[in-house]
Design a protein around this nucleic acid. Structure first.
Lengths: 332, 332
DNA sequence: CTGAAAGCGCTAACAC
DNA sequence: GTGTTAGCGCTTTCAG
């Protein structure tokens, strides 16, 4: 990067005003006489002046940039959430600085620190867990944080927007139960996330206990299509007849695997996916899904963040978004 | 954002050295005696000093940030490309500033300008077209640009990494032809992109002409699952018996629509998708696809960009990546 | 309404 | 090796 061709100083000189006035014009400050403003604007246009956002950031201590922390963007779930985030961010003139924490939690603190070094004005965190160290780093920074698409572990400190996963699990199991199924499976990727360990698994176990079910299994480390496909043998061996998955790809793998092995869906095996992405449509027979408004969740999270960054009051920092149980052909 | 708590100046004072020395230590400059370095590092740790990347950016004129321009990240194609880009970017300590140009081309120039204002060191452009104005803006900025996943419109000026789409279309049509099909369709979203208008459509038409085919159609503005689903009636009316689509979701819509209307696949209708995303697996019957190494394309593009930003020589600025025609059950 | 001047936190010659 | 000194380009009091 060479020395910037045209700076605020050049504009000031050409327009015969001070830098301060140019700055006011650029920032829409009203304390400028119309004549002066027009003169400055004319010069800005003639010189093709563009403010250097880095210098603005250093001087104003605001970068109009927010950090977005995602476990994995090749996961459509996060891609769709990001779309909502991006649109609202654009609307409010914020840029998004992307960071991935991988599927493991290794180094989330490092990722957060990096974002803070870049002086982001706020952070949207989409991974479903956060290390103690990462949390501390975030709290110490005092910048606003909103958790999107997962439940807030820290209702007091961070904002959050998500569906009520626990309720979604209960409702799904209720459907299975009413359809006469008694052998339930919960298929997860990482069982140690906050969401899994504190919400899903307890809800799953509690339901089983209340209904006196004895054959209920939690399968972990199942995250891809192939994992789902390969899980089918195990499901049959364990005599499972109803499955909840969190990812549509996994559900698709299970379905295709089960069909190939001659199982009938939904008679022998019912499936509900809480993935809620567009790809659910591709699955045949049509998947019964917990439909979350992913785009809206992203949009609401970003909207909340803009308010927090702007020190506006936020009525409800922990929003529970409604979901829909869309009955397809993988449940009776 | 409050005044930064601990700055390079604090470290210098506490370590009894000058700011310059602290800067050297932070940046791994070797011209520091080991003793001094250790003393500084100790203070850095004690004070939890973290460099302000914005100030670094202003002073050094390098932000270690690259802009990523995407048409739509809820499109898995770009999500998978982005994964490769992100991993390599992280490896080389670059951050990614995300921008979406929407599915229309409105304002790509604006998006580019915004990224330039933020002083990105380079740009990866993934949309499949770019406006004249946007191109000029990019050229004027003199920062390196790499086009990923689409063909380069400007082989001389921008770097590029992509498969040979034209060849992929020809090869696909050849398969259809050998299977006895004679009524071909090319299903596109926007026919005016460089890729469509300069590569795909000409290749499609040329093949038809060379093989004396009279019933070949190009369908435009088909981009979603539903669009594909709804296109089926038209396809039947036009007596199409072989289809190429660019998106897996669209292909899925066509397949499900065709099956529901009682068509047999691949006997009455063959389909090849060049989407190449993971979701192709969900489709039943299994989709025949032009498999592109999306992750690798993203990774190679980012690697090239790091070289360009570093003024290293790049042997080949326009890389054609090999693809694979994976025969599924939607072709004979 | 406008200008002067003091930084924001850091890098990069240039001396020593 | 280490320190001094200018900036980088902009915002923001504070006067007037």
């Amino acid at each position: 990067m060479q020395k910037q061709e045209v700076t605020i100083y050049d504009v000031a000189r050409e327009a015969k005003v001070s830098m301060a006035t140019v700055s006011r014009v650029v920032n829409g400050n009203n304390n400028v006489r119309k004549e002066t403003r027009d003169r400055v604007l004319k010069v800005i246009e003639r010189l093709h002046y563009q403010p250097n956002a880095v210098a603005q950031g250093l001087a104003s201590k605001k970068t109009t940039t927010v950090g977005l922390i995602v476990p994995d963007f090749s996961n459509l779930h996060f891609a769709e959430l990001s779309q909502g985030i991006n649109d609202i961010a654009t609307l409010y003139k914020y840029n998004i600085l992307l960071s991935s924490v991988g599927n493991t939690l290794v180094g989330d603190d490092h990722v957060i620190q990096n974002l803070l070094n870049k002086q982001v004005d706020g952070i949207i965190y989409m991974a479903d867990q956060i290390s103690e160290k990462g949390k501390e780093t975030l709290l110490r920074s005092k910048i606003p944080v909103v958790l999107a698409g997962t439940l807030s572990e820290n209702k007091e400190t961070f904002g959050s927007v998500a569906i009520d996963y626990k309720k979604a699990v209960e409702e799904s199991l209720e459907i299975f139960y009413q359809n006469g199924k008694r052998n339930f499976a919960l298929v997860l990727n990482n069982p140690e996330t906050y969401l899994s360990s504190k919400e899903l698994i307890p809800a799953f176990n509690q339901f089983a206990q209340e209904h006196k079910l004895s054959n209920n299994h939690v399968y972990s480390d199942i995250s891809t299509y192939e994992d789902g496909y390969n899980l089918v043998d195990q499901l049959r061996q364990d005599k499972i007849d109803a499955v909840i998955t969190l990812k549509d790809m996994t559900a698709g793998g299970i379905i295709n695997g089960a069909l190939e092995k001659g199982m009938t869906i939904p008679k022998q095996l019912e499936i509900i996916s809480a993935g809620s992405t567009n790809v659910a449509k591709l699955v045949n027979p049509q998947l019964t899904v917990v439909q979350q408004p992913l785009y809206d969740i992203g949009a609401m999270a970003m909207r909340m963040l803009t308010k927090l960054m702007n020190n506006e009051t936020v009525e409800d920092k922990n929003i529970k978004v409604p979901y829909l149980l869309l009955r397809g052909k993988t449940t009776l």
